[in-house]
Design a binder for these strands. Structure first.
Lengths: 225, 225
DNA sequence: TCAAAAGTGTTAAGTTTACACCCATGA
DNA sequence: TCATGGGTGTAAACTTAACACTTTTGA
């Protein structure tokens, strides 16, 4: 019976992570300037190999944690990339994931150790292998998902102003939005709660800080931006 | 340098195909009643293993062709499924794909040889392993995609009536649609062309046969149902 | 006092939905 | 002649988009 399996070849299975961050109106990716072979000196996504004792999803979480120190991060699978020569060194099948992290909140020592940098998504350098395709697809999927599920909050601090939120969605869609229409839509969502805190860093007048209430959202999940 | 790879384990990588067909107002999947081990006697998706000399996408095409004899079929990747024990026999990472085929148009001998049957998607039997999750996700993705890309035509014969088309979309979304609104939308799409042929099999009066013009669509790709 | 971001409603345009009857034909 | 599916337009409801001024405050 297990001849059924044995007549088939086995493959290295890798993970590649498209790590999105948001700061000052700009979306960035956390990319490695590789100080190791293969492709030393070139830019790539953070990656790793799936190990025996872990699921593919768990491998993706591990790889993200290795770079950022973060846990319980929003991640979605982008897909499997399986061209024969996608990695010129060896045949490797890679499963790409994207992650959304709060850019204030990662382990800077680890990132430094990996020689990783935040790079504006609109000014990406050339990336190795098929990483450009992975990024492109991840971006498209993230954009789609962001329009009907409240995943954007993973990119923001716990408390945020409506201006920050709008600027995030403007960055995701790459187009400006009408302030009044935007705020109307947001204020209709009961699970986006105004706190009594004020942010004074963004303006003299100060802006109300809001919070996304996950629990309230799950009770009445309706989101559309 | 290739120690970089060698310290990592390798895995069997499989393909599983969710094959959609449409007939008489119903969507069906082509499923195998397995007459081979493992899980002999149980229902499963058509599958196979990725081989050395082929990309993952090519493996998916090959697996589909092995069962149906068909070539150049609309296929999309559903994703990688990588739980450790998803296949109780051995660790296998599987990449699922869905395919849309014209149900009139496959190799019946091959299908018979594989002991495969068309099963109404709303009356699926228990499937092995994680195939139910694959089907569920494929269904969701197909439904989404069908709403903004004209993929449904792959499920129909080259010439089709508007009633057939409507009944296809009703089956995809699982809800009835208004005939006049549906036809209005379709007739606004210049790339859905009326032919001078009449289908008399569906009614006494006969219904005009239409054709999807791929080339015309690519010139002005706007589709929304 | 003024620059800079926060905050706030209304109207027009566009889209979506609801809805009912006549037509052509073969049995 | 009648049962069956094919074919057609309009109005109301709803959603989306466009648009400009006042407020607050620290420098």
């Amino acid at each position: 019976m297990s001849n059924y399996y044995r007549s088939n070849p086995k493959f290295y299975v890798a993970i590649d992570c498209i790590i999105f961050g948001f700061n000052a109106g700009e979306i960035s990716l956390l990319l490695l300037k590789r100080n190791f072979e293969p492709a030393m000196g070139e830019w790539s996504l953070m990656g790793g190999f799936v190990q025996e004792g872990e699921s593919v999803d768990d491998a993706a979480k591990r790889v993200l944690t290795e770079l950022t120190g973060l846990d319980k991060v929003y991640m979605e699978q982008v897909g499997a990339f399986g061209e024969i020569d996608r990695d010129p060194g060896e045949r490797v099948i890679s499963v790409a994931y994207y992650a959304l992290i709060n850019i204030n909140n990662y382990d800077r020592t680890l990132v430094q150790k990996h020689n990783a940098y935040w790079i504006n998504i609109n000014q990406l350098p050339d990336l190795i292998f098929d990483h450009p395709q992975m990024v492109e697809l991840a971006r498209k999927l993230m954009q789609q998902k962001a329009s009907y599920e409240p995943i954007g909050f993973s990119l923001l601090p716990e408390l945020f102003t409506l201006s920050q939120l709008q600027s995030l969605y403007e960055a995701i869609y790459g187009e400006p939005m009408d302030k009044r229409n935007f705020r109307k839509r947001i204020l209709d969502m009961a699970y986006i709660e105004k706190t009594d805190k004020i942010d004074k860093t963004g303006s003299k007048r100060g802006a109300a800080l809001y919070r996304f209430n996950e629990k309230a959202y799950r009770k009445a999940p309706n989101f559309k931006i």
